[in-house]
């Protein structure tokens, strides 16, 4: 298995490169942010010090003292859960239909589905804000939920389509010959077998919704403020207040860490191959 020394050296190099990349993009920024979040304004943090000389919770106190934070967090949780559930329910029928399309047609429709992702978020946010205002949805929780779904739906459809395409056609055929109508075959067979797609898509949707700022701000502000909108205001108008920004970042990071730990736990139970013998 070990291969030639050269192959092993290449493997080591690639491994090192990947870890270096991870360190640069993930560990390093998080570490810096954490340091700033706990730095002590009374002492300050200046070069050449690599880490601050003294730590404090002052930035945290400042953010958490704000009475708006807890309600905003609760609202965000609610909005994200509803957005995730609605996105899943809306995406599944679309994904099912897409998975049945012949190949050539499918690519076209996929582009159509992904179009909103290509347009810069701020452009979508501004124009949707305008439309939502006309429909009287501006400043409502419903409006925020709907506008977030616009952003999360394409990904969910994409992921579910791939999952459904992985479900062997024979299973649906078997269900049909056993007496299931198309609807029953889908709900009893395809839906439960699509759960890995729901899990993966749901996690992404939840994170995207929890962090979403532009569209929620355009539609919800100033009345409806999700945690992301609320926390962005701590970034302090003209100047960037680093310690507060760091606290905001860490708070927004928490659900993601929780979710990724959960995702790791769910693991890779290969239900798909199981019913189909040892092909």
């Amino acid at each position: 298995m070990s291969g030639s020394p050269r192959a092993r050296r290449n493997q080591a190099l690639i491994g090192f490169g990947l870890y270096a990349y991870l360190a640069l993009t993930l560990a390093f920024p998080v570490a810096i942010v954490a340091l700033w979040a706990f730095y002590d304004p009374a002492v300050g943090w200046f070069p050449p010090d690599i880490i601050p000389r003294s730590f404090s919770l002052s930035a945290w106190r400042e953010v958490l003292a704000d009475r708006n934070v807890l309600p905003a967090a609760a609202l965000s949780l609610f909005v994200s859960v509803v957005v995730t559930v609605l996105t899943g329910s809306l995406a599944f029928p679309t994904a099912w239909a897409l998975a049945q399309f012949p190949f050539r047609l499918k690519r076209l429709v996929e582009i159509f589905v992904l179009a909103p992702v290509i347009v810069p978020g701020i452009v979508v946010a501004v124009s949707l804000g305008e439309i939502f205002f006309r429909f009287g949805l501006a400043g409502t929780v419903l409006g925020v939920i709907l506008v977030q779904i616009v952003g999360t739906l394409p990904f969910m459809i994409r992921i579910l389509t791939a999952t459904i395409e992985g479900i062997p056609r024979e299973l649906i055929y078997a269900a049909r010959t056993l007496g299931a109508s198309p609807f029953v075959a889908v709900t009893r067979i395809a839906l439960p077998l699509a759960w890995p797609g729901f899990a993966a898509g749901g996690l992404l949707t939840f994170i995207a919704s929890f962090e979403e700022f532009e569209k929620s701000f355009m539609v919800g502000a100033p009345k409806v403020r999700t945690l992301a909108v609320q926390l962005w205001s701590y970034l302090g108008g003209e100047v960037l207040v680093l310690p507060t920004a760091a606290v905001v970042t860490l708070i927004l990071l928490t659900p993601m860490l929780v979710i990724f730990v959960l995702a790791e736990r769910i693991g890779k139970d290969d239900v798909m191959a199981a019913g189909l013998g040892k092909l």
Binding site: A174, T177, G275
Partner: peptide, 20 residues
């Protein structure tokens, strides 16, 4: 007729058991 109304039993090469 759709398959669900035919009352035919079908056995596949891949067994096609519902894995869940």
């Amino acid at each position: 007729m759709p398959p669900e109304q035919r009352n035919f039993g079908l056995v596949f090469q891949t067994y096609a058991l519902f894995p869940h």
